[in-house]
């Protein structure tokens, strides 16, 4: 029994157990989401929610869990590299519509940063937490990099990005039906800029043009913010 305990508490056993729990729950949630498509079932929200029950129930400190599953986080790097493929695929779209894409990107990004700052200040949120809120509307890998650059906490930003991803598609569907929009491009831009990958998935439901614009803008806006943050740290 003692030996079993010792084995269970060893690092490799912990890494295996938590990685398997994370991947397993993710796959189950993905299947649930594909079947019922409720907004709260998105894998980015429901998987952490279920895992948190496990973590709280077993009284595991977050550091320990993160340590065991950090190899998954490493894969964000090559996943970012893979973004080059959709950009290359849509290069004709960029060449044709680059002025509009630029306008949408700059307007959306500016408003995202300004409103996050303004509303946070209004509600008395300041310091590191406010900084971590600024990149919340861009895609996760970029948001975490930006957060690190401007003095926020990348992990905390990831929670806000996920929250945006849960609310975004619901709000986007609501707004798309109420705003006086005449172009597919504007609906795509709205979802891609405001709600990253979750918005892009919703945009694909609205139409294929909306989907490709959203997917493209999500990546471009993320890059714009990363370069902006790099310049910001360089100037500071």
């Amino acid at each position: 029994m003692n030996l079993l305990n010792q084995f269970w508490n060893s690092t490799p056993a912990q890494a295996c157990a938590w990685s398997l729990a994370t991947i397993g729950l993710y796959l189950v949630v993905k299947r649930i989401y594909r079947r019922w498509r409720r907004w709260w079932q998105t894998p980015l929200a429901l998987t952490p929610a279920l895992l948190s029950v496990l973590i709280f129930g077993l009284h595991i400190p977050y550091r320990e869990y993160y340590h065991a599953t950090s190899w998954l986080v490493v894969l964000i790097g090559p996943a970012t590299v893979a973004f080059a493929a959709p950009i290359y695929e849509n290069r004709a779209l960029i060449r044709r519509h680059w002025p509009i894409l630029c306008v949408g990107m700059i307007a959306g990004s500016g408003v995202a940063i300004l409103t996050s700052w303004a509303f946070a200040t209004l509600l008395g949120i300041d310091g590191v937490l406010r900084l971590s809120l600024l990149p919340r509307s861009i895609s996760m890998p970029f948001a975490m990099d930006v957060s690190r650059d401007i003095g926020g906490v990348a992990d905390v930003t990831s929670v806000f990005v996920a929250a945006t991803g849960v609310l975004g598609p619901v709000l986007g569907e609501f707004m798309a039906a109420r705003l006086p929009l005449r172009s597919a491009m504007s609906r795509g831009a709205m979802l891609g800029v405001a709600a990253h990958a979750a918005g892009t998935a919703k945009a694909h439901e609205l139409g294929s043009e909306e989907g490709s614009i959203a997917g493209l803008l999500m990546i471009l806006v993320g890059m714009l913010n990363v370069f902006g943050a790099a310049i910001f740290t360089w100037l500071r």
Binding site: T22, L44, P48, L51, Y65, L72, M144, V161, A162
Partner: peptide
């Protein structure tokens, strides 16, 4: 999305 789950659990 799977790769972000550990970070979101923060």
């Amino acid at each position: 999305l799977l790769f972000f789950v550990p970070a979101v659990l923060s």
